[in-house]
Design a protein around this nucleic acid. Structure first.
Lengths: 340, 340
DNA sequence: CTGTTAGCGCGTTCAT
DNA sequence: ATGAACGCGCTAACAG
């Protein structure tokens, strides 16, 4: 299939018997040209259905007004919300957005960066894949002075701005909630240990335990690979424990949902036998039976803040010095934990 | 913030004392140059961390290897799946993807098209907004010979390829399932009437009724604006009916989920008082209590097929004549309807 | 107020 | 086997 021809300035110029630069000036409403010619040109452009070639324009001004976004996966409701926030606010400020997903692999993350850089994006918003434990590609970006920031899945060693939730605080509150509602043995089910949020949420968990004068029990910390199979395996392990926890805090909602699907058929009562809480507030968490206590993370807001900060930096309205923006989370107590 | 400089061919050329065209040839592995120089150039390019400027390249060859995608909203799990399928398979064939959302408005849909066309995308994959009831912008695209196709939310008057589900068939099967499991008065809750899927699913609903020798009752068709408020309002209307339906088929899952949230606190038993079924298989539908009978639509598969066909057309591996690709759906009987 | 010129980075003739 | 020259569509500096 051959693409139809696009009207260019040259063609308008020929038709009107003026030079291309005059067209260019008219179309960007330059003050220094006769109102009549300007009017003639604008009308002709509309008549011919002229659309500027952004490629040529970007090449010329060496700016694309396009941002690149990399997320682990677009089908996650949380990341989709982030993207939505990024896109809406980028558009509002005259920027377009190119979105890529790493599918949680380091390899694709690198490839995405390469593509976006080749596409000459003005800046990047990156949320790291689960697999990412080496950061050369990001330091490389930094060394090449390509503006970018990290959001949600961040790493603290790279000297760029980052936007995160108060994961430690959120985990503290949910653990505290479990303890306040009568749990004595609260378990933390973590994701892979080098994940930023695994660590942060564990800190919050431990903080709450300490506050209640409880010693951390290594038996009460489990690590899931976050696949459905992994979660199911751990659910069975917990069910078989001779000395079960009476409260379980899962690093993310899907783990808790998988646990429920295993425990409910076994007759384990939630929250009476074990209270259960998650993190992120997936849509499914609100409708499952019993509804899952969790921690809300406003993804749209995160996207908005992230893109606003990056654009502020790009446009010189914010310092280039890295800053850390921390969003607060909200505990959503529901029936999977006991009432106060 | 100022973006760091990107290495160009010119710089490699100067460093190696050869001409730019030689660099160009070496980097695209042209056969007609000395293996040694080629090797030298490739090595130097890697050392200097050269990345081609896709803008310049695209301008030159007047092809961007980029596709544009427009969806109503990215936060819908179904559309996120489509995007995922599109992206994976576009990448596989060496194409990038620019994603836009119309937020269900005609205005943004038009703006998105303008942006993507200006960005010189090689083709477009479009799923129409709910609001779209005029099609000038699409006919315009057609007249300008810009390759595009429609998926899921399509219109049949535009002479381009489209990829849809067998909506009629899916609705037929779910209605038939309701009738087979004992329902006598089955209601259809539709979305706005000019929506393609509203019409198609109604046809399937009517088809099943006819097959069971039941006359269509206008009281048993309701139209929702598909907002949560609209759904809740209709849920109450149904609850108040003197002659309630004993089975309700909702055009999309969220409507059914909203109905449940209204009916459960009222003590209406599902499926005994009213059986309930949806369409699309949202993640939440599987975990709600009782789990919602629905129709699975493989979004990833749809995205894959759509992008494959468009690329086939672009690359001359498929005829330019519009075709209609229809994907089959799968009925997922769950506890919100009675067992057979 | 408008036209001429130059060049963004790259690929592609046409020479040699 | 390599270089010089041109142009993709556009903007901007300079000239008049």
């Amino acid at each position: 299939m051959k693409k139809g021809h696009q009207v260019t300035m040259k063609e308008i110029a020929k038709k009107l018997g003026v030079s291309v630069s005059t067209i260019s000036r008219a179309l960007k409403d330059s003050p220094e040209l006769h109102p009549d010619t300007k009017k003639r040109i604008v009308e002709m452009a509309k008549e011919m259905n002229y659309q500027p070639n952004l490629l040529a324009q970007s090449l010329r001004i060496s700016r694309t007004n396009t941002l690149g976004v990399i997320v682990p996966e677009i089908t996650s409701h949380f990341f989709a919300s982030c993207i939505s926030g990024i896109q809406d606010h980028a558009n509002k400020r005259g920027y377009n957005v190119m979105i890529c997903q790493s599918n949680e692999t380091l390899e694709l993350e690198k490839a995405n960066i390469r593509t976006l850089v080749s596409s000459q994006v003005d800046g990047l918003l990156i949320s790291l894949s689960r697999e990412t434990n080496k950061y050369d590609h990001l330091f490389d970006l930094y060394n090449r002075e390509i503006p970018f920031l990290l959001f949600d899945r961040v790493n603290e060693d790279i000297p760029v701005s980052r936007v995160t939730f108060n994961d430690e605080g959120g985990a503290y509150h949910v653990t505290k909630h479990l303890l306040e509602t009568g749990c004595k043995r609260v378990m933390y089910v973590s994701g892979p240990e080098d994940l930023y949020i695994s660590k942060k949420r564990k800190e919050g968990y431990l903080h709450a335990l300490t506050e209640f004068g409880i010693d951390a029990d290594p038996e009460l910390v489990k690590i899931s690979d976050l696949t459905s199979e992994g979660n199911v395996k751990i659910a069975h392990e917990i069910a078989k424990m001779t000395n079960r926890p009476d409260g379980v805090f899962c690093m993310i909602d899907p783990v808790a949902l998988d646990f429920m699907s295993v425990w409910k058929p076994m007759g384990i009562k939630i929250p009476d036998d074990m209270a259960l809480a998650g993190f992120t507030n997936n849509p499914a968490s609100a409708v499952i039976e019993p509804p899952l206590t969790t921690v809300a993370q406003p993804g749209y807001e995160m996207g908005k803040l992230a893109v606003s900060h990056l654009l502020d930096q790009l446009e010189g309205q914010a310092s280039d010095d890295p800053i850390s923006i921390v969003l607060e989370t909200t505990l959503l107590p529901r029936q999977s934990t006991k009432a106060l």
